[in-house]
C-alpha cells in the first residue's frame, strides 16, 4: 500500500464519527464527507441510509428538494456536514462573506441549508480542510447559523465535532466551545494553536489521529472510490486516479 493521503485519513475519521448513525445526508460539493458516509455504510450491517444531494445513484429521496429538510425536522437525519468560510469558537458558522454585509470584502456563495439544518440535525460535523486563522476566527463576521441557542429555542441539533486538515475537535454545547480530540499525523499541538484564532481546550499532550488500517484503506481505494466517481468524477480522478488502477495497488 502506498502512503496514506490526507483525503483518505479524513474519509476514515468521518466514517468513525458516524459510528451509530442510521441515516446520513451529505450536501452538494462535499466529496470527502460523501466518501466518509459511504465508507461507514460499507463497514456496517448494510442498513445505513446515505443520501447525497445531487446524486441519482446515491439518493433515496423521492419527494423533491424539500424532503431532506422535512426529514431533518422529523428527526430522521442523524448526521449532516456543514462547512464555513469562517467558524468561530462558539461554533457559529459564516457562509456569506468577510466584512460587513452587504459590502463584504469577500463574498461566498451563501448560507445554503445551514440556518435550518444546524438547528435540527443532532450530529452536525463541521468539516473544513483548510486549518488557518482566516477560517478559525475569534468571531464570525456574519452568522449564517449559530452554534448554540437559548433554552426557549426548539433545537435538537447542533455541532458535534469539527474536522480539519490538521486535527479533530469535539464540541461541548454546555460550555460552549471546542475541545481538541486528536492531532493528525505530521502536526503538533503548537501547529494547531498557531493556526486557530479561537481558544480551545486540550490535553497537555494530545492524542494522534489514528490512521486507517489496511482493510479500511483498501475499501476506500476500491469500492468507495468507484462509488464516489459516480457523483464526483473530478475529485475521484484527482485523488484516486482511475478506480481500476487504485484497486490494483
Amino acid at each position: 500500500m502506498s502512503e496514506i493521503r490526507t483525503e483518505e485519513l479524513l474519509i476514515a475519521v468521518i466514517a468513525r464519527l458516524l459510528g451509530p448513525c442510521r441515516h446520513v445526508a451529505v450536501g452538494a460539493s462535499s466529496p470527502i464527507p460523501a466518501a466518509g458516509a459511504m465508507l461507514r455504510r460499507a463497514q456496517g450491517d448494510g442498513r445505513m441510509t446515505v443520501n447525497l444531494l445531487g446524486s441519482e445513484a446515491q439518493n433515496r429521496f423521492t419527494s423533491g428538494g424539500v424532503e431532506l429538510f422535512d426529514c431533518a425536522a422529523q428527526g430522521r437525519i442523524d448526521a449532516f456536514f456543514l462547512g464555513g468560510g469562517q467558524i468561530d469558537g462558539q461554533g457559529n458558522i459564516n457562509l456569506v462573506g468577510i466584512g460587513d454585509y452587504p459590502d463584504n470584502k469577500v463574498r461566498w456563495p451563501g448560507s445554503f441549508g445551514s440556518a435550518y439544518l444546524y438547528h435540527l440535525v443532532p450530529n452536525v460535523i463541521l468539516f473544513r480542510e483548510e486549518h488557518s486563522r482566516r477560517v478559525f476566527v475569534p468571531k464570525v463576521d456574519f452568522v449564517s447559523a449559530p452554534g448554540i441557542s437559548g433554552p426557549e429555542v426548539n433545537r435538537p441539533g447542533g455541532p458535534k465535532a469539527l474536522l480539519t486538515g490538521m486535527a479533530l475537535f469535539d464540541f461541548d454545547r454546555a460550555r460552549p466551545g471546542f475541545r481538541l480530540r486528536s492531532v493528525h499525523p505530521g502536526y503538533t499541538l503548537r501547529d494547531i494553536e498557531e493556526n486557530t484564532g479561537f481558544a480551545f481546550e486540550h490535553e497537555a499532550d494530545p492524542e494522534t489521529t489514528e490512521p486507517p488500517d489496511p482493510a479500511t484503506l483498501a475499501l476506500i481505494r476500491g469500492p468507495i472510490a468507484a462509488q464516489l466517481a459516480e457523483t464526483y468524477p473530478r475529485f475521484a480522478e484527482r485523488v484516486f486516479g482511475s478506480p481500476a488502477a487504485s484497486a490494483a495497488e
Partner: peptide, 12 residues
C-alpha cells in the same frame, strides 16, 4: 419554519 433563529439572515 423551524431553525433560522439566531442567524443574521433574520436581520437582513
Amino acid at each position: 419554519i423551524r431553525g433560522i433563529l439566531g442567524s443574521d439572515l433574520l436581520t437582513i
